[in-house]
Simulated scan of single mutants.
Amino acid sequence: MSPLIEPTSIRLISRISSDNMEEFELLEKTELRIENLGLQNVNLTDVANAVADTLEINRDEVLVIDARGSLLTLDIMRDQMRPSSLVGKQQVLFSALGKVAGVTITDETTLCSEGILGWILVDQKLGERSLTQGQQIAANIRSTIARRVIVFATGPEVISGEIEDTNTPTIAAALTGEGYRVTAGGPLDDDIDTIAGVLRSAIEDRGFGIVITTGGVGAETKDKTVEALEMLDTEASTPYLAKFEKGQGRHAKDGIRIGVAKMGDALLVALPGPNDEVVISIQALVEGLAAGEGKELLAERIVGVLRKRMSDFHRKQKHETRGHS
């Protein structure tokens, strides 16, 4: 009897494939076991190819690991599979194997598989209905995760209490009003490995969809936040807010950058430390998120309002200087 697979049994570890279809983790349950079939001088490569073609995966991703007596065991050498390519495929698979020279499929032939591969055994109509329900649940969970935000301030002066963290409450107030759930992550030391590790854990272990840091984006040696983002996403968008001559004064780097990165579906944002800059940055972020912008456009939107603020500030200073001369 085919097992009934509830959509809630699918653990939500998935990605969108290159053709925009969702794939789920096999979670190390990668074996297909076919019992009570006849095997006589069988070419195992032909067997593996028949299975691969039926499951719509590359032929080099299926390996026969056991073939003896009336038992055939195959390993699917993938981390993820598309459930829609599995649902109700048992009879199709048996038919494909029956066409391989030396393989005999009978009424007694059975297929055993676990985890996501278990979708092969499910009735086609029931499987498609359950898969639709599962995708809806997954979409709802993903939507909830996307609105879970955690905020980290950086710097020893915040950790020691010398400086009050006004940025986290500012960000929380702005995002909560837009329907996000915001958690204060606490302060982080200016250590690139520590920052990268905490940010990664916030996404992979704690299930946050947006991770925001404040501070540590400057040009001094101690500023490590943007570099931490680049450790997590080598293609992070890190535009310059201002550029300097490296080595001039305390400038160990060639400028001030903000950062927007991605890890899977999660977003990481590195903002400056001054509260007035956080205020305008977070508003730009909210507007960009509402517009569905990717990391590049988000980064340019944020750095754009910061550059304008800096330009306005310098223009005001020049005007005041002329007024006093």
Score class of each variant (00 low, 15 high):
Ala48Phe: 03
Gln136Val: 08
Gly255Leu: 08
Leu117Asn: 04
Val279Arg: 14
His251Ile: 01
Thr238Val: 08
Thr54Ser: 03
Gly69Pro: 04
Phe152Trp: 07
Ile150Leu: 10
Arg257Glu: 08
Ile65Asp: 09
Ala291Glu: 06
Thr106Trp: 00
Ile212Asp: 03
Val149Phe: 14
Gln40Gly: 00
Gln136Trp: 00
Glu300His: 08
Glu245Met: 14
Ser2Ile: 05
Lys262Leu: 11
Asp205Asn: 14
Arg147Pro: 03
Leu175Ser: 13
Ala299Met: 07
Asp53Arg: 15
Arg301Phe: 12
Leu267Ala: 10
Gly88Arg: 03
Ile282Gln: 09
Leu268Glu: 01
Ser143Asn: 13
Thr8Met: 03
Ser113Tyr: 13
Lys316Val: 02
Met310Gln: 13
Pro169Ala: 13
Thr45Trp: 00
Thr221Glu: 12
Thr238Lys: 01
Arg307Asn: 00
Leu32Tyr: 06
Trp119Cys: 11
Val62Asp: 08
Asp107Arg: 12
Glu220Trp: 05
Glu320Gly: 02
Glu164Trp: 03
Ser325Ile: 12
Asp190Val: 03
Glu220Lys: 10
Val122Arg: 04
Glu114Leu: 14
Val211Asn: 03
Ile159Gln: 02
Leu32Arg: 09
Ile212Ser: 06
Gly179Phe: 04
Pro83Leu: 10
Gln80Phe: 14
Ala48Met: 11
Gly134Ile: 07
Asp123Thr: 06
Ser160Val: 02
Ile5Leu: 15
Val217Ile: 13
Gly177Phe: 08
Val122Asp: 00
Lys295Thr: 05
Asp205Tyr: 00
Leu121Met: 11
Lys308Gly: 07
Ser95Cys: 02
Glu296Gly: 05
Gly273Asn: 04
Ala242His: 06
Ala184Met: 01
Ile159Asp: 07
Phe94Met: 09
Ala138Gln: 04
Ile137Arg: 04
Ser2Asp: 05
Thr225Glu: 05
Ala96Gly: 01
Gly69Thr: 01
Thr154His: 11
Arg315Met: 07
Leu289Pro: 05
Gly102Met: 06
Arg15Thr: 13
Ala236Glu: 09
Leu12Asp: 14
Ala146Glu: 04
Arg322Val: 11
Arg82Cys: 13
Ala299Asn: 10
Val198Asn: 02
Glu35Gly: 03
Thr104Glu: 07
Ser95Trp: 07
Ser113Arg: 10
Val286Glu: 01
Gly323Pro: 08
Ala236Thr: 14
Ala173Gln: 15
Glu128Thr: 10
Ile195His: 02
Thr170Lys: 05
Thr154Arg: 08
Asp233Phe: 11
Val211Trp: 10
Arg68Leu: 10
Lys246Phe: 01
Gln248Trp: 01
Thr144Tyr: 12
Glu35Arg: 13
Leu55Asn: 08
Leu44Cys: 01
Glu162Asn: 12
Asp79His: 13
Arg129Glu: 15
Thr238Tyr: 00
Ala219Pro: 15
Leu74Ala: 04
Gly186His: 12
